[in-house]
Amino acid sequence: MPTTTFTMDDLTRLLRECAGEDDSIDLDGDIAGTEFEDLGYDSLALFNTVNRIERDYGIRLSDEIVAEVRTPGELLAEIAEHL
């Protein structure tokens, strides 16, 4: 069992802080399967957020992750493997 957890709430909080929030999108809804692009986030937004997650949680994700993960659910799964 990992001692640290990273939840969808953590992700939305950091997305808001690092990349802002598209006013027409409800990040608190069920977004696990929604593509980042449809949530208003481009690769740079994701890059900025992933960098912050790595820093705050002391983990190192692969350099290609920004290009590979397409949804918040996929990113959470990827992070869980590194915690």
Partner: peptide, 8 residues
């Protein structure tokens, strides 16, 4: 301004 533009 829209929220997405603020951090950048």
């Amino acid at each position: 301004l829209p929220g997405r533009l603020l951090p950048q």
